[in-house]
């Protein structure tokens, strides 16, 4: 197991390196960038080869792409992730990311825990009481939940609770001057968490239900029942454990999303998180910031894959990591 983990870590490091290069080069190949359209932004008499060249030098863009990649990588390793160009001019990328991360984690972890609890509960009940009224209701709820577009649901909630009833704030993480008031913060969390959870619960409960139903038809469960185990024990000891494998796969993929944030939800609820930061960095050609964010995502995806694989081994003894 240990050897396996160490080997996988090495592979992961290599993978991250390759991804970082890909990200860097693709980003720099894309049309756009700080020099694109410069001709339209400064007057023609100012636009000379010399002035463009000087601007390039100041931004560090005068060197070939591959050299810039190595400079960037070297600085990254030493903890200097560069400075933002356009989103928050001059500020260090790492600092920007760290300033948004707590907001995103608060939102995403709250939403994930809520969805996980609800998703598991609904999924299990639906599976055990297949085709009952509860199951049918859960099925309908899931389809509705999956079908509702996030932005529409979010706006409807704002119209209902902020505009009509005026009981919840329409956006932001806290009111001005009340940043340390937990109650105020929770009030701001309610709607975005509800929106995010709706979709997750809808999806996850279906996974849990399907997976559990599949497991419950297995021979070993009949054996477990035959040897006299109680219904609840069969479910918790034997069925659920096996049914969780696909859910772990899902959870593994969920980790990068936890850190990446949710662009649409964050935008609608004016939630200053990673998703919006990422979106802004791309639309305003802020390469240092976009590179930093993509790098974080890459590391997280690779790591969470590793965690998911290890997770298999824990819940499923048949999996041998060798």
């Amino acid at each position: 197991m240990q050897a396996y983990i160490i080997r996988r870590l090495f592979q992961s490091a290599l993978l991250v390196l390759i991804i970082s290069a890909l990200v860097f080069f693709i980003l720099n190949l894309a049309p756009g960038g700080p020099l694109s359209g410069l001709k339209f932004q400064i007057s023609a008499r100012e636009y000379s080869e010399a002035s463009v060249q000087r601007y390039k030098e100041l931004l560090g863009l005068d060197k070939p792409v591959y050299l810039r990649y190595f400079y960037w990588l070297g600085d990254m390793v030493r903890g200097d992730w560069g400075d933002s160009w356009t989103v928050s001019t001059g500020r260090p990328v790492l600092g920007l990311i760290m300033s948004r991360l707590p907001n995103t984690l608060t939102l995403m972890i709250s939403a994930t825990i809520l969805s996980l609890v609800l998703g598991l509960l609904i999924g299990i009940v639906s599976a055990i009481k297949q085709y009952s009224i509860i199951d049918t209701a859960a099925t309908v709820f899931s389809f509705v939940g999956i079908s509702i577009p996030t932005f529409w649901f979010g706006l409807m909630m704002i119209v209902l609770f902020s505009v009509h009833f005026r009981i919840l704030p329409a956006g932001g993480t806290a009111d001005f001057g009340m940043e340390n008031d937990i109650g105020n913060r929770i009030k701001h969390l309610i709607m975005p968490v509800a929106v995010l959870s709706l979709i997750n619960v809808a999806g996850w409960s279906r996974y849990v239900r399907a997976s559990l139903l599949n497991v419950m038809q297995q021979d070993y469960l009949r054996t477990a029942r035959a040897k006299g185990l109680s219904g609840s024990k069969v479910i918790t000891r034997h069925a659920l454990r096996n049914a969780l494998i696909p859910v772990i796969t899902l959870m593994g993929l969920e980790i990068p999303i936890l850190f990446g944030g949710a662009i649409v939800t964050e935008t609608i609820f004016s939630w200053p998180g990673m998703g919006r930061l990422y979106f802004q960095s791309l639309v305003s050609s802020d390469y240092p910031l976009a590179q930093g964010l993509l790098f974080v995502t890459a590391v997280l995806v690779v790591l969470s894959n590793l965690l998911a694989d290890i997770g298999y081994a824990i819940v499923d003894p048949r999996v041998r990591l060798s």
């Binding site: 305003s284 995502t297 995806v301």
Partner: peptide, 30 residues
């Protein structure tokens, strides 16, 4: 499963990269 996972992970990565390619113009038009 693992291969599928890796594939999915790569897709997750690719989406932002693709978004990057398409992103600039969108911004400039907003």
């Amino acid at each position: 499963n693992r291969r599928l996972l890796t594939l999915l992970a790569l897709l997750v990565l690719l989406v932002p990269v693709l978004a990057a390619c398409g992103g600039t113009p969108a911004a400039q038009n907003t």
